Structure formats: C-alpha cells, structure tokens
Simulated scan of single mutants.
Amino acid sequence: MDSQGRLTKPDTVQALWKDSVGIVATRALQGMLILAAATVVIWSLLQVSLVVTPLLLALIVSAALGPVVTWLENHGWPRLLGTFTVLLGILLIIAGAMWLVVAQIAGSWELLSDRTIEGITHLVQWWNSTFPQFALNDGNIQQGWEATREWLSNLNYGAVGSGVAAGLGTVGLLATGLVLFLVILFFFLKDGPQIWRFVIRPLQDAQHLRAELMGMRAVSVLGGYVRGTVIVAFVDALLIGIGLLVLQVPLALPLAVVVFICAFIPVVGATLAGVVASLVTLVTNGFWAALIVAIIVVIVNQAEGNLLSPIVLGKQLALHELVVMLTLTVGTVLGGIIGTLISVPLMAVAWALIKAWQEPLPELEADPDGSTMSERLRELREKAKKPRARKA
C-alpha cells in the first residue's frame, strides 16, 4: 500500500504471502488443512466403530476402576487377581440390578397395563368433553384399529424379513462389541501403566516427562469425572427412588435406574429422567402424585447442581455449559447414544491435556543431592495425582 492508501502490485510472488492479506490466506489454508485432516480421521474412526467404541468405553471405565485395582495390589493382592475381582464385582452388581428391574416390571406389568388403559379412557373422556366437535367414539377408535390392521396386512413381508435380519445383525454386533469391551477393559486394568510406558518409550528426556505428565493428568481427570458422576447419579437415584417408594409408585426401582443412567448425560439428563418419572407416575398414581414427583426431581436436581456436583466433581469438569451442550450435540450426531455418554468426558480429557502441555516440568539435570531421572519421574507421578492449585 502506498502513501496515498492505494494497494500496490507486489514485486515478487513471495511478497503476496507476506502482507496482511497473505497472512490471513495462509492461516485460512492451514485451518482448512487441519479441518480436512480431522474430518478424515473422524471418518476413518467411524468406519471401525466396532473397535473404537469398546476401546473408548474401556478406557473410561478403566480410568475409574484402576485405582481400586492398584489399592488391592498395594494391600498384597496379585494384580491379576485384583483385576478379576473388580471385574467380577462390577458384573455381579450390574446383573443384580438388571434382575431386580426385570422382576419388578414383570410383577407390576398387569397393574401397569390396567392403569394405562384406565388413563387412556380418562384421556378420551376429557378430549370428548373439551372438544365435542372432534369427539372420539367407539366407531372412530374401531375405524382406526381396522386401518392399522389393514396397513399391517399390506406390509411387504420381504422387507419385514430384511428388517428382522438387520436386527439380528445388530444384536450380533452388540455382542461382539461387548466381548471386545470386556477383553480390552481387562487388559487396561491389568497392564494399563505398562501399556502407556511402552507407548512413550521412544521419547527421551523432556518429551518423556511431558508424555508422563499428560498421561497422568488424563487418567486423573477421566477417572475423577467418572467416579464423581457415579456418586452424583447414585445420590440422585437414591433420593428420587425414596420419593417414589413413599408415593407407592409401582415401578420405583426401574425409574430409579433410569434416573441413575440419565445422570451420566450432563445438562439434559436430569430433565429427561424427571419427565420419564413424572409420566409413569401420572399413569399409575394420578396427577397429584406426578406433580409431587416433578417437584422432588426439581429439588434434587437443584441440590445436585448447586451443592453436590461442585463438591464431588470439583475441577474435573471445568467446562462451560455452552461447551458441554455443543459437545453433547456433536457427540450425539457422530456416535448416537454412545457418543452422548462419552463426548463430555473426552472433551474434559482434551482440555486437561491442553493444560498439561503448558504446565512446567521438573528440571532434568541431576541435583547436587544426586537425584536421578527415575526419581524425577516418581516425583512427577506423585504431582500428577494431586489437583493443581488454581492461580489467583
């Protein structure tokens, strides 16, 4: 640009990339290349989701259960025995909870079906009294049923067979993924530290220390997040379950399990659990009981958000609510239900890794007292286990 504020023709081609426009273009090109590379990586991972999904789930669960195995090892248990014990205990807890849920649903099925029919009848009566011009009578309902039967009879049974075959294939994929998850989880619990040390073995000096620090931070944040979420979910399920039992809701235990599972979905999980619990209570126990359940859910969620979560989770999830919402959305689009569950903890780990990348390292040189590199690594591991103090 000349003294008159007019653009001038560059003398050389290289000069095109050195002015302000060239710098912006360079950064834009770099951003496009990074975005393209990330797209290729994500697309490639989605093509092998049968392996990637069990791997990520096993990594998250192992980060939470690893300290338990280490505690057993420090108290004289062989690590292999401790791993088997922890895995068996978790499987027994899950199987017992599933058995109790199925048993209660089976025992309350007749009552639930009767109450559902009764609720639909009241709903039809309310509709007819409120909107008499669009009243529903037995003839309308019978016509709707006959139309449904005709639609079912005209279905392409070949397509139905294909759908059944696809469903069986999905069940097979789920079974394969479950087996892979258990196998990978076993090896992560048994040999997790050794696996990470093997991965970073080619690194030397400061790079090795940096990799040690980042690995420790990632495991600490991920494990703390999962354990804290389990505690919060258990407290929510316990309090809401007690309220359902006091109100004598027939499906109190299954609804408490729903609350526990939904608590793993940040921001929207509590609302979803409250809606499900209130709707079931509305069908089984009526309007006022459903209103009381909704009030209990709101109180518990407020106590969780303002008291329990900050204490239990602490700094493990130092993410803004907007970041959490965007992460949930992207995770759901890319990975469905599994993506919804694991996207937020993975984002928390990514943020922890970014902070660990900027964290200062201990000195590498030997001190006058003769400390060695291995001693520095031990100091680093002890340091990584403790949360960093927040700067004033």
Rank of each mutant, 00 (worst) to 15 (best):
F187A: 05
V183L: 11
R201C: 05
L209A: 11
G192V: 08
F186N: 01
L173I: 07
F188G: 02
I184M: 07
K190I: 04
R197W: 11
I184G: 00
P193S: 08
R201H: 14
A206D: 12
L189T: 03
R201W: 12
Q207L: 14
A211H: 12
L209R: 10
F188D: 07
F186D: 00
F181Q: 00
L209W: 10
L209S: 10
R210C: 06
Q204L: 08
I184E: 02
Q204Y: 06
Q204E: 13
L189C: 06
L203K: 10
Q194M: 12
I184V: 15
P202Y: 08
L178G: 03
H208N: 13
V183M: 06
F186G: 00
L189N: 03
Q204H: 12
D205N: 13
D191E: 11
R201V: 11
R201S: 13
G177T: 04
I200D: 10
G172W: 08
L180Y: 03
I195S: 11
F181N: 00
G172T: 02
A175P: 00
R210G: 11
H208K: 09
D205E: 15
L203F: 15
L174Y: 07
Q194K: 13
A175D: 02
D191V: 08
I184D: 01
D205H: 12
F181C: 01
I184W: 00
F181K: 00
L180C: 03
A175W: 03
R197Y: 14
L174I: 00
L173D: 13
I195E: 10
I195Y: 12
F187R: 02
L180D: 03
Q194G: 10
Q207D: 15
A206P: 05
R210Q: 15
F187S: 04
L174Q: 06
L189S: 05
L182W: 06
Q194V: 08
L178A: 10
D191L: 12
R197I: 09
I195D: 11
G172I: 01
L189V: 04
I200K: 09
F187G: 04
A206V: 12
L178T: 02
H208Y: 13
L209Q: 14
I195T: 12
W196V: 15
Q194I: 06
L174A: 08
L180A: 05
R201D: 11
R197H: 15
W196Q: 14
P193I: 07
P202H: 09
F198S: 15
A211T: 12
L180P: 02
R201N: 14
F186R: 01
L185E: 04
L203N: 11
F187Y: 13
P193F: 08
T176S: 13
L189Y: 04
R210L: 13
W196C: 09
L185V: 02
R210I: 06
A175Q: 05
R197V: 09
Q207N: 13
Q207F: 09
A211V: 11
L180H: 01
D205G: 13
F188K: 04
L174N: 06
I200Q: 12
V199H: 03
G172V: 01
L185A: 07
F198Q: 14
H208F: 13
D205A: 14
L209D: 11
K190G: 03
F186V: 00
H208T: 07
L189A: 04
R197N: 14
V183K: 03
D205F: 09
Q194D: 12
W196M: 14
